[in-house]
Computed example of a mutant assay.
Amino acid sequence: MNHSEQTLRLTGTGPTKERAFGAVMRQVQSAAAGKDGGVTFRVEPLALEVVSAAEHRRTERFLGVLFPRKRVHYEITMKVRVRITSLDLDSVDFAVREERLKLTQHLLHMR
């Protein structure tokens, strides 16, 4: 098993603060797994740091003048420090078993 620590910089957006934060947290697993070699089976967040958080507001109107409504969109960028536990499959010795089928057995297994 290999243990390593990485710091990831991730950005999430959403219509609420909670959804923007959730978007960041959903990215942690895939971002950490892509950077570490081997098969990742545990990604543990150790620390969170907010780099930037922005609230975007705009007013929309139907046909440009009617029915104004305010729209809000949140964007958050965070640094997430994670500990990754992975297994290097190249270091695992697999036993090789070879089986030879007779012609009739081979025909029965084909579909």
Rank of each mutant, 00 (worst) to 15 (best):
M1K: 15
H3E: 15
S4N: 10
S4Y: 14
S4P: 10
S4D: 14
E5Y: 05
E5D: 15
L8I: 14
L8H: 12
T11N: 09
T11C: 12
G12V: 05
T13I: 11
T13A: 15
T13G: 15
G14V: 12
G14H: 11
K17P: 13
E18A: 12
E18I: 12
R19P: 04
R19E: 15
A20K: 04
G22D: 15
G22A: 14
A23Q: 07
A23M: 03
A23C: 08
V24F: 14
V24T: 09
M25G: 11
M25S: 13
R26L: 12
Q27W: 03
Q27K: 09
V28K: 09
Q29C: 05
S30N: 10
S30E: 14
A31S: 13
A31P: 07
A32W: 03
A32C: 13
A32M: 15
A33T: 12
A33S: 13
K35E: 09
K35W: 00
D36K: 13
G37S: 15
G37H: 07
V39S: 14
T40D: 03
F41I: 11
V43Y: 02
V43Q: 03
E44F: 05
E44S: 06
P45T: 04
P45Y: 06
L48V: 07
L48T: 11
E49M: 03
E49T: 04
V50I: 08
V50Y: 03
V51I: 05
V51K: 09
S52G: 03
S52W: 02
S52M: 04
S52T: 08
A53D: 12
A53N: 05
A54S: 05
H56R: 04
H56W: 03
R57A: 01
R57K: 10
R58L: 02
T59P: 00
T59F: 01
T59K: 04
E60C: 02
E60I: 06
R61L: 01
R61I: 01
L63Q: 00
L63D: 05
G64T: 02
G64S: 00
V65P: 01
L66M: 11
L66T: 00
K70D: 09
R71N: 05
V72P: 00
I76F: 11
I76T: 06
T77D: 00
T77K: 00
T77A: 01
M78I: 00
K79Q: 06
K79W: 02
V80H: 00
V82R: 01
V82C: 02
R83C: 04
R83W: 02
I84F: 05
I84Y: 03
I84N: 08
S86Q: 08
S86Y: 07
S86K: 06
L87P: 07
D88I: 10
S91E: 15
S91W: 10
V92E: 08
D93E: 12
A95Y: 02
A95F: 03
V96S: 04
R97M: 11
R97P: 04
E99T: 07
K102Q: 09
L103F: 10
L103W: 10
T104R: 02
T104M: 07
T104Y: 02
T104D: 06
Q105C: 05
Q105E: 14
Q105M: 09
Q105A: 02
H106P: 07
L107C: 05
H109E: 12
H109V: 08
M110G: 08
M110K: 10
M110F: 02
